[in-house]
Design a protein around this nucleic acid. Structure first.
Length: 397
DNA sequence: AGTCCACAGGAAGGGCAGGCGA
DNA sequence: TCGCCTGCCCTTCCTGTGGACT
């Protein structure tokens, strides 16, 4: 082993770890308590309670911004519900509609749901009405109250329309032995305006809005989690406050607050510090943003990357759409890419703006037309990283 | 007040790939 | 297996726009 490597490992092994239970600060961790969501927990529990007596609970539609505890609260309540009613025959089915290859199409979603009841469904090939029958029969055979949780339901409706929800919310009319309750969860507050009013009224028998956490509540959440995740006295004063304040600035996102704390602790540990300090939170914030941007750059299609490469080639601080297009045409020529039209490039520029990679603003230059002014608001170091990615992925020159 | 520039951005439709379903 | 359908990416055509210039 190289001596430098040995030094790194030895150093790591000899240091006291900051983390006591690192798993408890990851996305997949289900906490035993959900502070500041008592009201929501009680409401959902009382809506679902009839299922213990074998009655059908009302469908629930929940919406709120990301990181407001929607999924955590629902899984907390349903987990407890199943535990309490061990022999009462309640089955929970959770589907995250954002998962690819699970809820991309009506067929896949139905196949996934049917498999939850032990049925063997081919990945493709069956007519949709056939699989609907399989699904209904499978449910009815169980003689249970089925609670189907559709997380990120807005993504599902975007992809496959609301026909599926219409059928699902009416399934009870055809069932003899079982009953189905649907819990829809959405980040998009205007989602219900986009669906059929009949679906809307049956899905939203009960409607709930999860409001964002404020900075004080976020601090409390972090403090309670802190004792599970970290060893004693490793979090410096002001760290929790800073993480909470930064996350509250966004939209009261608890996930963001926990991420900040986790990344800050990882940075502290990597730097050999025995304590997590405020400066680590600053570094964590810029690392999270940096990672997000680099990830976005990596996953862009080639044409979009060519547009970005053209923007990076500009020496001036600001450029206009027309200039970018001229450079882009040259870049295409040099790299053997078929150039897109200006109309399309204009859309790609707005997409890059939406991703936060560039900053584009529509301005008017009076006699000299209306255009977009484009700036790169990134640190030199990050720009260099982006260049490296573009060169290594597509050999741009 | 009217003109004009350089686009923004909406609408419609073509082409293609991949998935569906009989 | 193969025709059909759908979604995505893209082009073409078009109207709209803010403000400098005349």
């Amino acid at each position: 082993m190289q001596t430098s490597l040995k030094a790194i490992f030895d150093n790591y092994a000899s240091k006291k770890s900051i983390f006591k239970n690192k798993k408890a600060i990851t996305i997949s961790y289900n906490p035993d308590e959900l502070p500041h969501r008592e009201k929501e927990i009680n409401t959902i529990a009382s809506i679902l309670a009839p299922s213990i007596r074998g009655e059908k609970p009302s469908n629930i539609f929940i919406y709120g911004k990301p990181g407001t505890g929607k999924t955590a609260v629902v899984s907390y309540v349903t987990k407890n519900l199943v535990e309490i009613s061990k022999d009462k025959k309640i089955k929970i089915v959770y589907i995250n509609c954002k998962m690819r290859k699970v809820a991309d199409t009506e067929y896949r979603l139905l196949a996934q749901l049917t498999r939850e009841f032990g049925e063997d469904v081919p990945a493709t090939g069956l007519p949709t009405d056939h699989i609907y029958n399989m699904f209904f029969n499978a449910i009815d055979k169980t003689e249970q109250t089925i609670i189907i949780i559709l997380d990120e339901i807005d993504v599902l409706v975007d992809k496959i329309g609301d026909g599926f929800l219409y059928n699902l919310t009416r399934v009870n009319e055809d069932l003899k032995n079982s009953q189905v309750c649907v819990i829809g969860i959405s980040n998009n507050l205007s989602f219900t305006n986009e669906i059929d009013p009949r679906v809307k009224s049956s899905l939203s028998e009960e409607e709930m809005i999860f409001s964002p956490y404020n900075a004080t509540q976020l601090q409390d959440i972090l403090r309670r989690r802190m004792s599970i995740v970290f060893n004693e006295n490793v979090i410096d004063e002001g760290v929790i406050e800073k993480c909470a304040a930064l996350a509250a600035q966004e939209h009261g996102d608890a996930r963001r607050a926990l991420d900040l704390l986790r990344v800050a602790a990882e940075i502290a540990e990597r730097n050999g510090s025995e304590k997590v300090k405020e400066e680590h939170v600053d570094k964590a914030e810029s690392k999270i943003d940096k990672d997000r941007i680099l990830e976005a750059v990596k996953t862009q299609p080639r044409q979009s990357q060519a547009v970005l490469w053209s923007i990076l080639k500009v020496k001036e601080e600001e450029v206009y759409t027309g200039d970018i297009y001229n450079i882009y045409e040259k870049v295409c020529l040099e790299n053997g890419i078929k150039p897109l039209t200006q109309r399309r490039v204009s859309d790609l520029i707005s997409e890059l703006d939406l991703l936060g990679i560039i900053n584009a603003k529509v301005i008017s230059k009076g006699r000299y037309g209306r255009t977009r002014i484009v700036k790169l608001n990134l640190q030199e170091q990050l720009v260099n990283k982006i260049r490296e990615i573009l060169v290594s992925q597509y050999y741009f020159q």
